[in-house]
């Protein structure tokens, strides 16, 4: 299937820490699109009620204990997200952390997902940068810097929905910048360079 016919869902999770083993989801946002066309009606944002300490989260994401206490249970977010598993390729900027936490949350809530295709815009950026640089310049692959490089406007960072939207814009900009004019690019081309991966998540069956 050519990439231009595939639906993508960019997801961003805001977490209590950067440690997969202890981190919890404080909010989630996503938005879907296809062939450069982002459907603003699909935008989703939800604050999650978490038991563990918020640590640095209030500082970075602006989520305070009060807001988090009014949030929903993480299983509600998972329920909303799971229908996109078979239909969309999931896009993250730095997938490792977010999919790790997602995997843990699915397991803890007794859910599982097979054959999710996960695409990482950070990996794609690094792949392109490595063509030009032996050693990558510091901070050359953050979401903001990657967007700047492709001429996208500044976007407010560290809100789950805004980061998801920014990630999806980045993906489309990357796709068209590096593959523009070429027909028949498929997702296999991204699997082969390890920018996309098939994943199983959640409890082992």
């Amino acid at each position: 299937m050519p990439v231009s016919d595939i639906s993508f869902l960019a997801i961003d999770l805001e977490l209590t820490s950067l440690d997969v083993t202890t981190s919890q989801i404080t909010s989630a946002g996503w938005v879907s699109g296809r062939a450069g066309d982002i459907d603003l009606d699909s935008a989703y944002y939800q604050v999650v009620k978490t038991s563990s300490s918020l640590e640095q989260s209030p500082v970075i994401h602006g989520l305070t204990a009060d807001t988090v206490a009014q949030g929903c249970h993480v299983s509600d977010v998972l329920d909303a997200l799971m229908p996109f598993a078979g239909t969309h390729i999931w896009v993250f900027h730095n997938a490792r952390l977010d999919t790790g936490v997602l995997d843990k949350a699915l397991r803890e809530n007794g859910r599982s997902l097979d054959n999710i295709v996960v695409l990482d815009t950070l990996k794609y950026a690094v792949y392109q940068l490595e063509k030009q640089h032996q050693v990558l310049p510091p901070n050359s692959a953050t979401l903001t810097v990657c967007r700047q490089r492709l001429g996208l406007p500044l976007a407010p960072a560290h809100n789950a929905l805004d980061d998801a939207l920014a990630t999806l814009q980045l993906w489309f900009a990357q796709y068209y910048t590096y593959n523009g004019g070429t027909k028949n690019v498929t997702i296999d081309d991204f699997l082969s360079i390890h920018v996309a991966k098939c994943k199983k998540m959640g409890k082992k069956s």
Partner: peptide, 9 residues
């Protein structure tokens, strides 16, 4: 919608 508009799409 928010379109990323290029010559391709």
């Amino acid at each position: 919608s928010l379109l990323y508009l290029t010559q391709d799409n």
